[in-house]
Amino acid sequence: MTTFDAEAAVDLVWRRQGVWSRAAGDAKRRIVAARRAVAGLTIGAAVAGTAAAGIGENVPARVLAVVAAAALLLVPIVARAASRESVQAWTRLRSVSEALKADVHRHLAGVAPFAGADRDAVLLRRLDALMDDVGDLMGHVVDRAPDARPLPEVSDVPSYLTARVRGQVEGYYLPMARRMATRSERVGRAATTVTVAGALLSATVAVLGDPLGLTAWIGVTATVTTALVGYGAAQRYEHQQIEYARTADQLTRLLAVRAAGQGWADDDAVVAEAERIISLSNEGWMARMIELDGAAQQ
Rank of each mutant, 00 (worst) to 15 (best):
L280A: 07
V104F: 03
L123N: 00
R186L: 13
E57N: 15
F4I: 01
T3W: 07
R94G: 04
Q168H: 08
W285V: 00
R178A: 14
I77S: 06
Q17I: 01
R276L: 12
D132N: 15
I277C: 10
A109C: 14
T50K: 15
P175D: 12
M131V: 05
A295E: 11
L64R: 04
R179T: 08
P158C: 07
I277H: 08
M138I: 12
Q241E: 12
V196C: 01
Y173S: 09
A197G: 06
V10E: 01
S184W: 08
L73I: 00
Q241T: 02
H107D: 11
L254N: 00
R36D: 13
E7W: 06
L251A: 03
A68L: 10
L41E: 06
L212F: 09
R106S: 13
R166D: 15
R125K: 07
R164E: 09
L280S: 06
D5M: 06
V63N: 12
L123I: 02
D143F: 02
D118P: 04
L255N: 13
A112Q: 06
V187N: 01
S184E: 15
W264K: 03
Q298P: 07
A69T: 12
Q235G: 00
A82W: 00
A259I: 01
S21R: 09
A79R: 14
D266R: 05
T215P: 00
A39D: 08
T91C: 11
G263M: 10
D5L: 00
V271I: 07
V47N: 10
E291Q: 13
V271N: 03
K28I: 09
W264V: 01
S97E: 12
L124E: 03
E291C: 02
R179P: 02
L100P: 02
V47T: 12
H239C: 00
D147I: 10
D210Q: 06
A109R: 05
Q262K: 12
G25L: 06
G213I: 10
R92H: 08
V207H: 11
R178E: 13
I218V: 13
V205Q: 09
V165G: 07
M131D: 13
S95L: 10
A129T: 07
G116S: 10
I278Y: 08
D118F: 03
A227Y: 11
V10C: 05
I277R: 05
P146E: 02
L208R: 11
A197D: 00
D5A: 15
P175F: 02
L41W: 12
W264F: 15
A199W: 06
R106C: 04
G135K: 12
G230Q: 08
P150H: 09
A61Q: 15
G263N: 06
P113S: 01
I43M: 14
T182R: 15
G40K: 14
A265M: 03
L280N: 07
Q88W: 04
L201G: 09
R30E: 07
A109P: 14
D26Y: 05
T3E: 06
R16L: 03
V19Q: 11
A233Y: 04
D249G: 03
S83V: 11
A203Y: 05
S159A: 11
I278W: 09
L161R: 06
S159V: 11
V187G: 03
A48G: 12
D266E: 09
A23D: 06
E153Y: 02
L208V: 05
E273I: 11
P175I: 04
D133R: 15
V38M: 11
Q235F: 01
